[in-house]
Design a binder for these strands. Structure first.
Lengths: 260, 260
DNA sequence: CGACTACTTGATGAATTTCAAGCCATGTGG
DNA sequence: CCACATGGCTTGAAATTCATCAAGTAGTCG
């Protein structure tokens, strides 16, 4: 399951890093998909690939750039549902012709491969293997949604931010090996992070300062440096190891669970 | 997309009810799956169908009973990821042999059909249509995960509880038509609701009392009555219509979004 | 009847939001 | 080149939602 990390020895092998924390696997459907894509679309930063309510009959694969999916409530509250990096599939819908329940927006300039839903069936019968791959991709997306869910629902702001950074970092590592401490391109604003985690940008700012002051990460001007992946994973993993250097308290939410 | 509601005129046709609030579609893969299931398993309430960390090479379809999926943090905090009713598929994993990133537990006594992953490919090549159905099921699960995500991240406790009840209610309606006000079997405890929404059971209790006092729902002893589906949807949909009877305030989180 | 679980209610406290400024970069037009 | 607007970040103080702690009630089950 950790195949995504194979290329990144320095960081990826860190024991804390190789935890269930990172369960964000997306099989490379890339090669297959690119063959059956009907066309490519390049989208400027900040514009929608598809919008909520729209009846989209296409599936997309990100080829380049960052994309995110979100839902917006009537009064403007926004929840970011997932980030899509090159290789990610986008726009699954249960039924043909169903309205999209969320929007997808390009975070940076991005290009996507467009797969018409109608032709998917045709390709599925020609190449049964493809079905498995698409199912795997969907399963991967489901897994990251589940990770986000426990981030938002059950982790502290600090834990959640650390965990999100870790997950995104691991996906970036998957694309090309990274060395700890190196600054990598990271186009999210604090507002994006907040909207992904159910926090306000203000509080993300404070949380990030906390992580910065501990020398764990550095995040400025669209560049992310993970200085201490171990400590980051420690914070994300929310284990009250008492190892945590500075006198920061983990809330005492211990509810001893009756072990089913 | 609202096919799930067709049988339930009294409630399903309510305008507020037919909102994007309910985007929880799961195609009936049932008939096909039951054919290829290798066996059935019946699980007593409160025990795991699969556990986190376990390498499960099966896919499951719930045939009877309620199941829920969850993740548990080291200190006992629990996040419920989804509820599975008869017809729901369970246990998608990106890779063969991957460790499950979450557990599935029977909420009531439940029976599931077991589909060995290995044979899935085989069946996919025999019946390409099946691939589309499984993809649809995964897309449905993804949609409900996304709805939960914005419940937990961006909705008030009251909105979130109302929205969750509404979503579950709509799924129950899909199985067999219900008339507003009728008590239906609803096996979740307040703790389950809390763990699904990132709240404590105590706070769910207070929230539920609020809904009860408004005459919107009644939830006691495993029985749920939706007395006023319209009001419930109103509360869930978080539209500041000023229609809300009692003097309850919706928090002023309006951030006017620069339209991308 | 005691043990247990689910639910209820109140009082207190903590995490996070809201409101309000100010800062720093970048870009734009006179 | 400067004025000025803009977007993202930062920080502080006050308000609020929600969690924690604590107790008590009701229903179930052996």
């Amino acid at each position: 399951m950790l195949s995504v990390l194979h290329n990144s020895p320095t960081i990826a092998n860190h024991p804390k890093f190789i935890a269930r924390a990172i369960s964000d696997d997306r099989l490379p459907v890339a090669s297959v998909i690119e063959e059956i894509a009907s066309q490519y679309r390049t989208i400027p930063a900040g514009t929608d690939i598809y919008s909520e309510g729209e009846a989209s009959d296409d599936l997309y694969m990100v080829v380049e750039g960052w994309v995110f999916q979100h839902q917006i409530l009537e009064d403007g509250r926004r929840q970011i549902l997932d980030f899509a990096l090159p290789g990610s599939l986008l726009g699954f819908q249960p039924d043909r012709g169903a309205e999209m329940t969320h929007a997808a927006e390009a975070l940076t300039r991005a290009t996507v491969a467009v797969i018409p839903r109608d032709r998917l069936g045709e390709f599925l019968s020609r190449d049964p293997e493809l079905g498995l791959r698409v199912i795997s991709a969907a399963a991967g997306a489901l897994n990251t949604a589940y990770e986000s869910l426990t981030d938002v629902g059950r982790r502290t702001a600090r834990e959640a931010v650390a965990h999100l950074l870790l997950r995104l970092f691991s996906r970036i590592c998957a694309a090309g090996p990274q060395v700890a401490g190196t600054a990598i391109s990271f186009p999210l604003t604090q507002e994006h992070i907040g909207d992904a985690l159910g926090l306000t940008a203000v509080h993300v700012c404070r949380t990030l300062r906390c992580l910065r002051e501990k020398g764990v990460v550095q995040l400025t001007n669209g560049k992310l440096s993970v200085l201490d992946p171990g400590a980051l994973a420690e914070i994300a993993g929310c284990m009250p190891d008492a190892e945590a250097s500075s006198g920061t308290q983990i809330p005492s939410r211990e509810r001893m669970r009756r072990v089913g």
